[in-house]
Design a protein around this nucleic acid. Structure first.
Lengths: 336, 336
DNA sequence: AGGAATAGCGCAATCGTTTGCGCAAACCAT
DNA sequence: ATGGTTTGCGCAAACGATTGCGCTATTCCT
């Protein structure tokens, strides 16, 4: 395992480490290095298969070509897809991704953010867990940071999120238009912003139409969907004619419960869901749903991050935070 | 953004940077630092909220507390779950994860591995894409490396994979035992090792029972499942009474095709699948399947990696490669 | 009292790059 | 010949930590 750095190349070629560095980092022209030197050095570099030590490079330049991505649970297909997109888009720009998973724990989130800092990542994309923006804002002052998918109500931080209000409103309107009048919405974590917005959208659509609707539940889980559905539909005369599941996990619980109760989606009760999940097409009937434009969101987040990074690099005045709400789309299938 | 390193702490406290470093990296006792110094230094460190610069630390110690994880597509729920587990287990050991996604491209895989090297990660866990082990073995000589989920037939590298042969054999036996005699297996990428093993397991079970079976298809995709199913079952007297899908994506295609052909799983044709995917429980009927023990695999991979890292650290003779095939389990549901 | 042992700490080199400055040689014009 | 540019390159100081070695007091032992 002989070493292999700019000094070894320097010795072999007779040029100084400085010149070697300049050639190999592509600054040859800027420093007017002769063609002869360039040729000799690059030739030797290939020969010994030289790769710059990125750690040393980072230390010196204070840039790591790395972005920290913090997600609350990569096993969730929603976050997995989003991560894949972010990683891909970053890769296309020559950046690597340090991925941390907070597992929905505020504690873990704090640690991950600190770790990103210690590691001097060049930027952070974060799907936050905590309810207070304090830490994020503190970190955001030092390192460019963009929130993704979730945001804080009052914050100067940039974010890119789904317009959950609009999505829920749209879904509810669709149900109403189809003739459903008594709608049960099963929500996820009540404290989370996306959930609140969905609830708000749902309720305002219901109210506007003068229909009746209630919001129940407390987690983005299959279990929660199951329990709430069972509770609501075990009466012989259920007070609802449709269900709006605020996530695909909730939906699955709902489906399971309905099946147990011998009720069929569409025929006995209208069903609509939130979330992208190709799998919903394979249920019978396929489930009508509100889909978030993940690719759009992921690349906008990266875009926004790079804008901030760029401004800081040139020490321009920080641009106004870019706070994007991307409208989701209604994917119509056969469940209502 | 005032800086905040061992020198600033050194100045504030009057101790040398050396002592500060020793205290803050927990080596105080080893170097017999006085309690007074320890107290003063840690106090100052908290006060200014000091975090060691991990980049500098890595450069000096040649350890990064980072593992490179290379997956062929994080948006695939299977890899997403596996990644989540690996990340979690690594985190519990105090390691961070640099995640790269090869997107099933050999080119990307090469670059990612090189990048890991430049970054001096302490170890690599890789779900490989390429068919030749050459590069992996080269890298593996320099950096501890473990293959996960896929492996190379003749290699000295350690790996942890599902015993796909056993899994397919088990599934096929189950079908046979249920009375199915003419089984269609729809496979994924024929060149990939897991696929070959599944095919082998399927065929040998069929042969042993003297039943009839064929293997068709060429991709782990919904589309492939759809096409092959349609092709095989559009005749009025289909030559098969059961389908074995080699992945859950293939299965979905199959379900779709059957639905179009007005055939029902279980009633008209037995269906069994490979892969973990909780969603399979929500199809109607729920799909019987061969599930891989992902948690087991993920943590065994980490375990194995650390064993190699440990041996190298103490420059012990490299232990014999650990090559694990983990038996999957049959999850019985209602589709056959 | 004299020497050895120990406790407590610091010097300076090191990891591999980058970069501000400056220096010598070559070239050009007067 | 003189002075001014331009060309091509190298010195040495960073970046922020770690660590082998050694130095000075103090304590201990006989």
């Amino acid at each position: 395992m002989e070493k292999n750095n700019i000094f070894t190349i320097s010795e072999k070629t007779g040029y100084s480490a400085t010149t070697v560095s300049r050639v190999l980092s592509g600054k040859a022209h800027k420093y007017r290095i002769s063609q002869a030197a360039i040729d000799r050095i690059t030739q030797e570099a290939d020969r010994c298969n030289y790769r710059p030590n990125l750690v040393a490079q980072s230390l010196r330049t204070q840039k790591s070509q790395t972005i920290g991505l913090l997600v609350p649970g990569i096993e969730n297909p929603f976050f997995a897809t989003l991560s894949a997109i972010v990683i891909e888009v970053l890769g296309a720009r020559g950046y690597h991704t340090l991925l941390a998973d907070s597992g929905e724990s505020e504690q873990e989130e704090r640690e991950a953010l600190r770790m990103f800092q210690s590691r001097s990542v060049d930027g952070i994309i974060c799907i936050p867990v905590s309810s207070s923006p304090a830490l994020h804002e503190e970190i955001g002052r030092k390192i460019p940071l963009v929130l993704l998918d979730r945001y804080f109500r009052e914050t100067k931080l940039s974010y890119v999120c789904t317009d959950n209000y609009a999505g829920a409103y749209m879904a509810t309107e669709y149900l109403l238009q189809k003739g459903y009048r008594r709608i049960l919405a099963i929500q996820g974590v009540p404290a989370s912003m996306p959930n609140q917005e969905r609830a708000r959208g749902f309720l305002s659509a219901v109210e506007k139409a003068g229909a009746s609707g209630s919001v129940v539940g407390d987690a983005f889980s299959v279990d929660n969907g199951f329990r709430e559905t069972q509770k609501a539909f075990s009466a012989s005369q259920p007070p609802y004619d449709a269900i709006f599941a605020f996530s695909s996990t909730i939906l699955l619980g709902t489906i399971q419960a309905l099946r147990q109760l011998q009720l069929r989606p569409l025929r006995d009760v209208g069903v609509i869901s939130f979330d992208n999940n190709g799998f919903l097409d394979f249920l019978d009937p396929a489930v009508t749903r509100v889909e978030q434009p993940l690719r759009e969101a992921g690349s906008q987040a990266v875009e926004t991050l790079f804008a901030i990074m760029d401004a800081r690099r040139r020490s321009l005045p920080e641009p106004a935070p870019r706070q994007l709400l991307i409208p989701p789309t209604l994917v119509v299938r056969d469940s209502c």
